[in-house]
Design a binder for these strands. Structure first.
Lengths: 154, 154
DNA sequence: TGCGATTAAATCGCGTGCGATCTATATGTA
DNA sequence: TACATATAGATCGCACGCGATTTAATCGCA
């Protein structure tokens, strides 16, 4: 199946496809590229979108709680959440009972956007991709299991 | 299965686990965290490691060819490869026949490191993770198929 | 041959991830 | 109460990814 075109730039396309880590890495890039134009409509990046979804499901979370869900820490989340605050999607407020804790809440506009992106965006994408609910669930389950094994190994 | 500890920070751990995109994203983070200490021994980042593996398989590639395999472009690869050059792992040289093209070649030391990381690192990791060759191959095939669908949709 | 269009790579700015460190608050134990 | 320890966030520097633009070389076609 070697075509003339494959002798030049495409010669080695798929050359790294025997590495599972690369499958995960490159699929992540592809997901990002697919999401980007949709999220641009809301002015959100992909990790910002994840924070909005997490807050849509449970509002008024601490930075640490959000980090627990996204597997990120304050060094990444603090600036990200500050950008969400600057965009008017969330508020950041020190907990009065424990001043070490910062509580993140959706603004009214944030709630509206979070609702939108939680439902419309994934549905719109998965339909465009052409993959069944069952395939998604099975693959996702394998990935979550793998992720847990990787975490245990680390 | 709700434990007392789950009422606080861990309450919503796994809250985003119904999103396939998040499964891919978070598994990518976990892979990176697992690889990091091993690659630190060579002074390589994960994408740098991918370039070294690609060059181990076929040396003397152009920036565009490497990008075709890693799904990246020169805006990402040029600075990355310059760092590999600064570290003494590769050389960068304009093609004499077509001066637009930059050819990347492993140095002697680069060849040695590339050999090492191509074989030892993945084997060492997968053994630590505890996942069979068959599981790896099946999951990876699903991911490559998904990636291709995502690319077509983009 | 000449000249616009195309191509390969480089550059720039911004938003992540993350190791390392710092600050401020809370906790525990004498 | 006092002081060491622990915890939650914040800050900083560096290396990606990537959209947008720029530069330089080649190609195509009259």
């Amino acid at each position: 199946m070697t075509t003339p075109a494959m002798t030049t730039e495409n010669a080695a396309r798929g050359a790294l496809d025997d590495f599972l880590c690369f499958g995960v890495y490159s699929t992540g890039l592809a997901f990002n590229r697919l999401y980007k134009p949709l999220l641009d409509r809301y002015g959100l990046t992909y990790p910002q979108y994840l924070v909005m979804v997490a807050l849509a499901r449970r509002d008024d979370q601490t930075v640490g709680e959000l980090g627990g869900q996204l597997f990120l820490e304050s060094n990444t989340l603090t600036p990200l959440i500050k950008r969400l605050e600057a965009a008017g999607f969330v508020t950041r407020q020190r907990d009065t009972a424990d001043e070490r804790v910062v509580r993140v809440r959706l603004t009214q506009r944030g709630q509206s956007v979070a609702q939108d992106v939680s439902t419309c965006v994934p549905a719109e994408l998965m339909e465009a991709v052409g993959i069944s609910i069952e395939e998604i669930a099975a693959l996702n389950q394998s990935l979550v299991t793998l992720r847990e094994k990787l975490q245990r190994a680390a």
